[in-house]
Design a protein around this nucleic acid. Structure first.
Length: 256
DNA sequence: ATGTCACTAGGTTAGTGA
């Protein structure tokens, strides 16, 4: 099974690139973040024509997540079990016994912003949810835009970036708490000390100068980690015409 | 550390969020 994650920064704008990428890579599952579409505007028909079912959860202007898949997921979930807080950042489904949880973690904006404590609270709620999900589905992938660079190897210039948002110790501790539930950063596990980025700022020619961060992650539960064959960041998608500022990340799991 | 992009509302541009 092959599962991917991609922050598309508006599915309305990026639908042609997404359809092309689906055709080229043919993943079983593609998790999207920042669709920025209300549910009635979700391109269900175009994706069905491409052979993909869609589970989606959006809102106007901001956020929005979706899971595109060859097969129909079981136990589909949109948003928190305790109810929505008005921000569409979470959805999940089960494919052949493998739970896939798709998240768009709040950005946080800056350490001074009120969005920063929201981010930390959101991550704590996610930890509690994943703890429960792991009990039901030991085979679990937690994928998405985490808006956290796990450590300094994931930052183009860690000295310049310092402990600013996306790299602050409390954010990294929140990510560690998630990993401590029994998950691994699959890309890092496969690639040792390699440095690659999944996001490059549109501003200041970030991509041309290869100034990026690795903030799009696929966390695999320990039960799944032995089946991981490959994890790749598809930098070509970022080099394409009218790109998202994020590249897709794709994990290949051994077939049964 | 800002060389962009996408969104919306409202008035063909400015604010906002990333």
């Amino acid at each position: 099974m092959r599962v991917a994650s991609w922050n598309v920064n508006s599915l309305k704008v990026r639908l042609p690139q997404v359809l092309e990428w689906l055709q080229e890579k043919s993943p079983d599952v593609l998790c999207l973040q920042e669709t920025k579409l209300t549910d009635e505007k979700f391109p269900v028909a175009e994706l069905a024509e491409a052979g993909y079912h869609a589970l989606y959860h959006g809102q106007p202007t901001y956020n929005g997540v979706a899971i595109l898949s060859r097969s129909v997921p079981e136990d589909g979930r949109c948003d928190w079990p305790e109810g929505s807080d008005g921000q569409a950042r979470l959805c999940a489904g089960t494919f052949a016994g493998t739970r896939v949880v798709n998240v768009y973690v709040p950005n946080g904006q800056s350490l001074e912003s009120d969005k920063y404590p929201y981010k930390l609270q959101w991550l704590e709620r996610l930890r509690a949810l994943i703890a429960k999900e792991l009990q039901q589905w030991p085979r679990l992938l937690l994928v998405g835009d985490f808006n956290i660079a796990p450590d300094d190897r994931d930052v183009y210039d860690p000295v310049a970036w310092g402990e600013d948002v996306l790299c602050s110790p409390p954010e990294r501790a929140a990510l560690s708490a998630l990993l401590n539930l029994g998950l691994q950063d699959s890309w890092r596990h496969q690639h040792g000390d390699l440095q690659e980025w999944s996001w490059w700022d549109y501003r200041a020619a970030g991509f041309r100068r290869n100034r990026g961060l690795r903030i799009d992650l696929i966390l695999a539960s320990n039960a799944l980690m032995a089946e991981v064959q490959d994890v790749v960041i598809d930098r070509n998608a970022r080099a394409a015409e009218r790109p998202s500022d994020h590249a897709p990340v794709l994990i290949q799991l051994q077939e049964e």
